[in-house]
């Protein structure tokens, strides 16, 4: 039977993607880019789950990816609606401009 790569390589790839997404969500100052970072993080989590499903030859990991996708879809719908709402109220997409409480 042909083989692919060790499971650890899949985990490392997923971790690098997750860190890229987390860095985007933390460092970028645009509300849309913050949401994009969260999407990248969710996708990286799905990649780790699929690798785990293959590592243990069990379908549970793939079933979880379905639910991750449902969470990602609902999160992006509500998140974008929130962004549109706050842009209407304050007229900006820069996260630094939401400083009404001077935090």
């Amino acid at each position: 039977m042909p083989t692919i790569v060790p499971y650890s390589h899949v985990l490392i790839l997923a971790a690098i993607l997750f860190l890229l997404g987390a860095g985007c969500a933390v460092a970028r100052r645009n509300l849309l880019m913050i949401l994009i970072g969260v999407e990248v993080m969710l996708s990286a989590g799905g990649l780790a789950f699929i690798g785990a499903a293959m590592r243990w030859q069990h379908l549970d990991g793939q079933a979880f990816v379905i639910f991750i996708m449902a969470v990602a879809a609902s999160e992006v719908a509500v998140g974008l609606a929130l962004i549109v709402y706050s842009q209407r109220r304050s007229g900006t997409l820069a996260a630094d401009r939401y400083d009404l409480m001077k935090g």
Partner: peptide
């Protein structure tokens, strides 16, 4: 990365199977 390469490798590479 070091930890994963040492610990979580498991029994060799993943087999090519399809669900």
């Amino acid at each position: 990365v070091v930890f994963l390469l040492l610990a979580a490798g498991g029994p060799g590479p993943l087999p090519l199977v399809t669900a």
